[in-house]
Each structure stands twice: as C-alpha cells, then as structure tokens.
Simulated scan of single mutants.
Amino acid sequence: MSRGVTGADPTRAVSMQGHYAGAATRLAAFALDQTIATSLFALGSAIVAWAIALVTSDAFKWDPDALFTGSLLLLWLFVYYSYPWSVSGKTPGMALLGIRVVRADGSPASGRNAVLRTLALPLSFLTLGIGFLPIIFGKERRALHDKIAGTAVVYSWDARSARWRFLARQQEADPVAV
C-alpha cells in the first residue's frame, strides 16, 4: 500500500473511529455547542416573555435580575451537556463533528460519568485553562474534567463506512457504471 506525503498509512486516515479526538475538533464542537445552547436559551426566554405578555397584558414588563437569569442559564447548560452525554455520548455540536464521550476504557459513558463531567467542566476553565493542556500534550488527550469523570473523547465516525454507503447509493442510481 502506498504512503502519502506525510508517510501516514492512508487506510488509517480513512477511519479514525475510536481514536482520541484532537484539540481543534473538541474546541470547534464546544464553540458550536455554546452557540446552539445560548441561542436556544435566548429563544426560550423570548417565547416565555411573549407568552407572559400575551396572557397578562402588553403593559406587563418582566425584568428578572441577573442572578435569576444566570442561574437559569447555568441550569440549562447543565441539562444541555449532561443529558446528551448520558444518552448518546454526544451533544449536537459533537455529533456534527463526529466525536463522542466514552468511558476511559472505551465503553459507553453512563449517566454518572456525564453528570461528573458536566460538573467538573468549569474546573478546566477555573484553572486558567491549565485543565485543558492534557488535550494538547497528553497521550490520551483527556482534560482535567475527563480525568475526574473517568471519560475520554474519541472520534465516532468512520469515513470508510461512509464511502462504502456512498458507492452503494451510486451503483443503485446508475447500475451500468460498475
């Protein structure tokens, strides 16, 4: 089998399933998730405010304090991250980028792992980012919150399988071009 310019085995590059996810992929997934989560929170808040105004009257002006809104946002973010991690191992942003949370041994993450990971995630930020350094420099690419929760983030897509599905669909569409 021929090797590419970098000397890497091309069959290995086609399927990264089960390999530890890199820092760029994880950061992009987190940015997507934060965008999705805050957008959904803003939309939900607007709908609640509209419903209250509709039921009471146009004169009603709801002005919750920052502590209440911040608490609701934190509760929403907790649910946004912990529930998908416990059910499927991936948030919407992670699903779009093909990564998932698993236990350190590779088995599916449990609800306990998901809740611990969600609660420990702020620690990686509160250490001024030092908690994220193992993602870049560590062999297993496990951040502080991953180590606390006993989890790892791995690629969950398999490009080789996707290519076979694509070729099968192409043949179904044009059986002569075999």
Rank of each mutant, 00 (worst) to 15 (best):
residue 160 R to E: 14
residue 39 S to P: 01
residue 74 L to M: 14
residue 71 S to Q: 11
residue 144 L to H: 00
residue 26 R to G: 06
residue 156 S to G: 11
residue 49 A to E: 10
residue 117 R to I: 03
residue 117 R to G: 01
residue 52 I to R: 12
residue 55 V to Q: 11
residue 167 L to V: 10
residue 103 R to I: 03
residue 128 L to W: 12
residue 51 A to V: 14
residue 90 K to I: 06
residue 43 L to F: 14
residue 102 V to I: 10
residue 22 G to I: 02
residue 143 A to M: 04
residue 74 L to A: 15
residue 26 R to C: 03
residue 157 W to G: 11
residue 160 R to M: 10
residue 77 L to N: 07
residue 146 D to P: 02
residue 83 Y to W: 15
residue 50 W to Y: 11
residue 159 A to E: 13
residue 18 G to N: 03
residue 83 Y to S: 08
residue 80 Y to E: 00
residue 80 Y to C: 01
residue 33 D to A: 03
residue 5 V to Q: 08
residue 68 F to A: 15
residue 146 D to M: 05
residue 111 G to V: 04
residue 24 A to C: 07
residue 143 A to S: 12
residue 68 F to G: 09
residue 131 G to W: 00
residue 71 S to K: 10
residue 152 A to E: 04
residue 80 Y to F: 15
residue 136 I to C: 04
residue 123 L to F: 13
residue 141 R to F: 04
residue 74 L to Q: 12
residue 173 A to N: 09
residue 150 G to L: 05
residue 127 T to G: 06
residue 103 R to S: 12
residue 170 Q to P: 00
residue 95 A to N: 08
residue 78 F to D: 03
residue 34 Q to V: 11
residue 138 G to T: 03
residue 44 G to Y: 00
residue 12 R to A: 14
residue 3 R to I: 07
residue 31 A to Y: 08
residue 143 A to C: 13
residue 141 R to D: 07
residue 136 I to W: 13
residue 122 P to K: 06
residue 97 L to H: 00
residue 85 W to C: 01
residue 176 V to D: 13
residue 46 A to H: 11
residue 4 G to N: 13
residue 22 G to N: 08
residue 62 W to P: 10
